[in-house]
Structure formats: C-alpha cells, structure tokens
C-alpha cells in the first residue's frame, strides 16, 4: 500500500526511467545473469559451451561471465607467478601505513617479503608455501581455485561487476567488484592491472558500503627479483616457513554450520590445540580450538580493521576449550560459526 503510494507521487518523467531501471534490474537477476553472455568477449579463447546463448543487444551487463572469468584467472596467475616489488599503502584500523613488498618465485615456490615503512618496524619473510598445498589437490588452493569448479563456486557466492577503469601506480587498471550474494562474507573491489593481472588496489567492503581496509600500490616494479631483495633487512624480521602446513591433519572438531560455500582448506595441529582454515575462494576464516586454561574465559569479539576474532568456549568431557573464530567476515557470521563448533562423534 505504502509502496504504491510512493510510486504514485513520482513525476511522469521518473516513470520512464523507472521502467528502464526495471528492465535492467530484471536482466540483472541472479538466475539470468548466471547464464549471461558476453556481448564482446574479451578473451579470444573458446568460451565454455554452456555460455552459448543469444546475445541481448542494447543491454549493458556489468560483468559477463567471460569477462569476470578472464580477469579472475589473470589475477590468480599474476599473484602466483609474477615477480614484482613495490611500495604500497595499507589503510586499516583508521590509519594509513606504507609498506614495501617483494614477491619472488624460487623453485616454483613463492617468497614474500613485507616491511612496514611507518610505525613500529615490522618485517616478515614468508616462504615455502604453495608447493605442498598444490600437491594436496585442494580445490581452493591457489592453484586449484580458478579451475572451472573453483570458479563455479565463487560465482555462486558473489556477483561480479566491472566498475570501469582507473589509474593506479601509473598503470591502467580494470575495476572489478565482487559483491556477496549473502550476508556471510564481505565484498571486494579489486583494481586489476590491465597488462599483468596483478591487483593494484584492493578494498574490502562491508554491506553498508563501508570500506574496511584498502591496500594500494604507489609504485610497482616488474623487473626480476634478486635473491638479495628477498633477504630480511632488519634483525627482528619474522620468518614464516609454510612447508608441510597443508598436510593431512585430521581434525577432531567439526562445524555444525558454516556459511554457504566455505570449505575446509587446511587443518593444522598447534601446541595447545588445532586450527582449521575455511575458504570460499575469496574470503577466509580460521577456527582455533585450544586448551588455554580457565583464565581465558573472554566471550565476545575483538576487531582489528577488517579482521574479527570471536571468542567463545566449549566443554567436552569436562575439559574446557577456548574457541576463536578469526577472519575477514562479518562479526555475526564469526559468532554463528563459533557457536556451531562441536567435537566429532
């Protein structure tokens, strides 16, 4: 009733545009856009068969399957195999910091060095991951993510839109938005380097359009990386070796509920418990179940920038376990996940 009234009051000029909006809106509906076809396919490669359908002339579809697929595949390739170094800004927790990042590939494995140039000196050298995970064959590992099945999963969870172009770090970029189809994950806006596919800027976006964090290159150098560039500059640099962390640890915990599309991608034993990593292809959260003693009885959430940690506890056979769900997911989702942790059997 009220709705009709509102429409009655609108001026006639608005009427025609309303119709136009409706037309767009109808063709935007998930069921149809899932089969939408590229008007101008961006890739020269043959498209998957199921995408063959008559093009709809005159309609501007935000991101066709072919476009989104090509872009995402390019991103996955670039973040894995491209060597680069650069300066970047990271806005987070309401402040902006600058950092130096180096990405090299050694013996098929990725090596990253990250050093903050502002605030307290912090540096991380990370190496040795990916090879193990790839062998593990997880559909959501870096290598497997953008396979056809991985991509299918991501597309059923997010709408993809091409938002235009912009220039970042003196390079041309295509702006891609991934908007979640349900409230259990955040959206992302990624500006993808036109030439290499490297994300030059990425933002994490909460439902109301609030930007939670923004990572953006200021300067990018694509020259091959020397070994010296991967050596830590400060003595306090933390080293993280990921070898063997994608092993087949069998967890004794399970989730009674997880948001649609999130799958367990890694499980690891810790000194005082275990951690389980879940990913939907773009977002990830980790469930920690630990024996931390009775003092760690905090119940609630803690946030830092886009990352939330929701803490709760669980008693099994009179043993108290602290549960912490950490991730770049909405608070309420972390809470739901924490409540659903249970022992197997």
């Amino acid at each position: 009733m009220i709705m009709a009234k509102v429409f009655c009051c609108s001026a006639p000029k608005a009427n025609s545009s309303l119709l136009a909006f409706l037309l767009l809106a109808i063709f935007q509906s998930p069921s149809i856009s899932a089969q939408a076809v590229a008007e101008e396919p961006v890739s020269k490669e043959p498209e998957p068969n199921e995408n063959r359908e008559a093009a709809r002339p005159g309609l501007v579809l935000p991101a066709t399957d072919a476009e989104a697929q090509a872009l995402l595949a390019k991103v996955a390739e670039a973040v894995t195999n491209l060597e680069y170094r650069g300066l970047a800004t990271f806005e987070h927790v309401g402040v902006m910091e600058t950092l130096e990042v180096v990405h090299g590939v050694r013996n098929g494995e990725q090596v990253e060095r990250i050093r903050y140039l502002t605030g307290a000196p912090r540096e991380l050298v990370s190496s040795g991951h990916d090879a193990q995970c790839r062998r593990d064959g997880s559909p959501l590992s870096r290598a497997g993510l953008w396979s056809s099945s991985g991509l299918e999963n991501v597309r059923s969870l997010y709408h993809f839109f091409i938002r235009g172009q912009e220039r970042i770090a003196d390079r041309e970029a295509v702006v891609l938005e991934a908007r979640p189809r349900d409230p259990h994950r955040y959206g992302m806006v990624i500006s993808v380097d036109r030439e290499t596919g490297l994300p030059l800027k990425s933002m994490l976006v909460a439902p109301a359009g609030r930007v939670l964090e923004r990572f953006q290159f200021v300067e990018l150098d694509l020259a091959p990386i020397n070994d010296a560039d991967l050596q830590p500059l400060s003595n306090e640099a933390r080293k993280s070796d990921g070898s063997g962390q994608c092993g087949a640890h069998v967890s004794r915990w399970r989730l009674g509920w997880a948001p649609n599309g999130f799958k367990a991608v890694a499980a690891r034993e810790l000194a005082d418990g275990e951690m389980l990593v879940f990913s939907d292809g773009l977002s990830a959260f980790t469930v920690f179940v630990q024996k931390l003693g009775p003092d760690m009885n905090y119940q609630g959430r803690a946030t830092r920038g886009a990352t939330v940690a929701y803490m709760d506890h669980l008693e099994v056979n009179n043993v108290r376990y602290t549960i912490t769900v950490v991730g770049e997911i909405p608070d309420s989702t972390a809470q739901l996940v924490a409540k659903s942790v249970a022992a197997k059997n």
């Binding site: 991103v75 996955a76 670039a78 973040v79 894995t80 970047a88 990271f90 987070h92 910091e97 950092l99 990042v101 990405h103 990253e112 990250i114 050093r115 903050y116 912090r122 540096e123 991380l124 990370s126 991951h129 990916d130 995970c133 997880s138 959501l140 590992s141 870096r142 993510l145 953008w146 490297l198 994300p199 990425s202 964090e213 990572f215 933390r238 993280s240 990921g242 962390q245 994608c246 991608v265 890694a266 690891r268 951690m275 990593v277 990913s279 292809g281 773009l282 990830a284 959260f285 980790t286 830092r304 920038g305 886009a306 990352t307 950490v326 991730g327 770049e328």
Partner: peptide, 21 residues
Amino acid sequence: HSEQAARVGSQGMVPFARATY
C-alpha cells in the same frame, strides 16, 4: 589466520600485510 589465509587465498599481498601488521 592471516598467514594461513595468504596461503590458501588468491588475494596477493593483502593477507601478508595483515599478518605483518
């Protein structure tokens, strides 16, 4: 979490920036 997310995800440097932060 951030380190592990960097290994399974496809977000490039962002999780590393978080892990170092």
